[in-house]
């Protein structure tokens, strides 16, 4: 397949839709096995390992996170949360033959019971073309007010 800007942009929109619809099986399949979902804690943080982040999760943790959402004794998900992404058109920042980088500004809403929170986020996707399919190599999600005190963020921005 030839990857065009539109292919990349569609991919980002499709991923957000999977998250909003709770289609986690397909979502996990988008990932390369050694990928990491990183949500920094500090503004412009550069080190995910030796400093606290909100999330820095490998496939094992992401599977655990997603699997837990449906558990019989997942008390914080009774009732379940719902989420909603609104995307600006993704910027395609880098385009090589098989590696691509996009940056997307989004508003993310997560809600449960009577509470609803809005997070303004910037998502950076490192994408790779592997065996004819686009996959997520890494994803970084920066929350604009990362230094604020948050309540539970239970789904995936």
């Amino acid at each position: 397949m030839t990857v065009t800007r539109d292919t990349l942009i569609d991919f980002i929109y499709d991923e957000a839709r999977m998250l909003d619809e709770g289609n986690y099986t397909d979502w996990l399949n988008l990932w390369l096995p050694d990928g990491h979902y990183w949500m920094p804690l500090d503004y412009k943080q550069s080190d995910p390992i030796n400093q606290t982040s909100l999330m820095y999760e490998d496939m094992f943790m992401l599977k655990l996170r997603v699997e837990r959402l449906n558990g019989a004794r997942t008390f914080s998900q009774k009732p379940k949360s719902r989420c909603h992404h609104v995307l600006q058109r993704p910027f395609v920042d880098e385009m090589e033959e098989t590696r691509f980088v996009t940056t997307t500004f989004m508003h993310y809403v997560e809600t449960r019971l009577d509470e609803q929170q809005l997070l303004a986020i910037t998502a950076r996707h490192d994408l790779a073309l592997v065996d004819g399919a686009l996959r997520i190599a890494n994803k970084r999600v920066d929350i604009v007010n990362c230094d604020a005190a948050f309540r539970n963020i239970q789904l995936l921005p």
């Binding site: 949500m39 804690l41 606290t52 909100l54 999330m55 008390f75 948050f150 309540r151 539970n152 963020i153």
Partner: peptide
């Protein structure tokens, strides 16, 4: 981050 973050699956149940 795994245990005490607002994004932690452990913290969620404590809260």
């Amino acid at each position: 981050r795994m245990i005490n973050a607002p994004t932690s699956i452990v913290g969620h149940d404590d809260l």
